[in-house]
Amino acid sequence: MSERRAVPPWLQEKISASLPGAERRRFTHVGFMEKTLNAITKFMDDQLFSEQIAKERGLLQTLDPRAKLLSVFLLILTTALFHHAFPLILMNLWVLWLAKSSGVPLSLFTKRVWIVVPLFTGIVVLPSLFNVVRPGTPVWTVFRLEHPVTLRYLTIPADVAVTREGLAAAALLVLRAGASVSLAVLLTITTRWNTLLKALEVLCIPAIFIAVLDMSYRYIFLLLHTSNDMFLARKSRLTGRLRPKEARRFVASVMGNLWGKTTALGTEVHGAMLARGYTGTPKSVSHFVMKGSDKVWLALVCVVALSLLGVDRVIL
């Protein structure tokens, strides 16, 4: 080590300890840094919250994860086969009851499902509401043209309207997507993520895929923590608002840095696995036990699925 150097004069300058009065702004600008930090925190909170629900002693939490996964798979498949809205409404109501019986707060559950579903499915079904795409009985005329217009393969009628058939098809699709998403959300919120991944073996997913997913999930958290630290470190040295160019440069450097860290960590993890005898074939122990109650549950799900299918195909 070199000889200790004298402290440079600028480092000895005293800055007044008193801070100027802060100007209180009515509107605070939320920069990308805060948004990123908030998003990371929200993700962590969501995971923690899901884990808490998965630990509850509700109806679905007591089931063997494989039975739960199979039943959800079967119910989603059945939902896709319905032709009428009535069984779909029944299915949605039943899923809501299941959520309530499993200690899932209904407000959170419905928000997660019924904000996302209409938004995304709505965009998909929007064109089919109009008689431009699907001819049918008009219920609401949007606008009138002087005469029909033909554009190569598409004919636009003089009265462009929302049709009854279009509305029915859209409602059916939204209800179907709602039921499927509800079932998927219910499965993920009432099962710990690593348990759920392990249960995928029942669907004959190769062990190597399950192991890779499991490790990815574990390291996502570590890398999120690292990103969080990098953003916080940058924020702690920020004296003003970042210009867009600087912000872009910072994000690029975080990405590069994370990439480097991920690569180095990947090499080290592989070394740690080899050191403990890993030869490329993952081995794990399953502690799942299919109890009598799980078999009863699977039978009940089959009865519900067949009954609703019967209502859909025979009665309606």
Binding site: W193, L197, R218, L265, V269, A272, G277, Y278, T279, V285
Partner: peptide, 26 residues
């Protein structure tokens, strides 16, 4: 057996039980 300096690299399983079971299973 090798105990790495960086425990984050060493602990690659999803929970403590599985981490300990990894070696014997392999």
């Amino acid at each position: 057996g090798f105990v790495f300096q960086n425990s984050e690299a060493q602990l690659f399983s999803s929970n403590v039980w599985e981490e300990i079971a990894f070696g014997p299973l392999q």
